[in-house]
Amino acid sequence: MQGVGVRGGDAVISIASLSKRFPNGTLAVDKVSFDVPAGQVVGLLGLSGSGKSTLMRLVNGLHKPTGGHVSVLGRVVDECRSAELRVLRRDIGFIFQQFGLVGRMTCIENVLVGSLGRLRGPRLGVRSYPKALRTQALENLERVGLLAQAFQRADTLSGGQMQRVAIARSLMQQPKVLLADEPVASLDPESSVQVLDLISRIAREDNMTVLCSLHQVELAIGRTDRLIGLRDGQLILDRLTAGADQAEIMALYRRTGTAQSVETRVNQLA
């Protein structure tokens, strides 16, 4: 084990007093620390603007932290040079709220993009990928239940289907860690449940370590092992999901929310 951030031998993700202040002065993540052991599925809770997205992007190096450290799979992310970062990212799947598909490309080509980290040189068009990878892409599409749509353009799909294509793209990486940033925030309730069930099923089947941000507590219960809550960039909740009561957690948010607004009102008067 190397680096500052790795605490505990079996932690796959290790975050130590991690902070991120953007150039415009916003402090998005404020001294957050926690470890995630292998195979754990963590639900990251918080209102929009609470720092969930930033935290996720710090974990795979899309953002650089302004303080503290984050290590994944034994490598300190913030100390990686860009080539090392690319190698690391190959093992970390990332699922985005906005899916990140190119609408004009077919589903299979969007899925194949997930294998680029293992390939040399740029690719354009399905036929520029090796046959073995194309077979694998079809298998992954089958796994998310979209084999029949393989050669359709991505922009002909519904939101829930697009997110499943994005999951198939992550599966191409055969990731050990999966980061999902608000994967269901743009979806209707029915597709949300489908997509989250798919993520948690795949995570258990492939023994992935998952960090999944959500802003609906009820969706996290039953699908995650552990709940971590952020507010204004600070860690305000860290507990196992088992036995967690939705009302109780909601109340926590409500209380802090009210406390804050009372506080600001007092400050304004003073």
């Binding site: 990212r89 899916f99 990140g100 997930g114």
Partner: peptide, 11 residues
């Protein structure tokens, strides 16, 4: 968003 998604794969 597609750019970010592709970068996250390690390209």
């Amino acid at each position: 968003s597609p750019r970010e998604a592709v970068v996250s794969v390690g390209t």
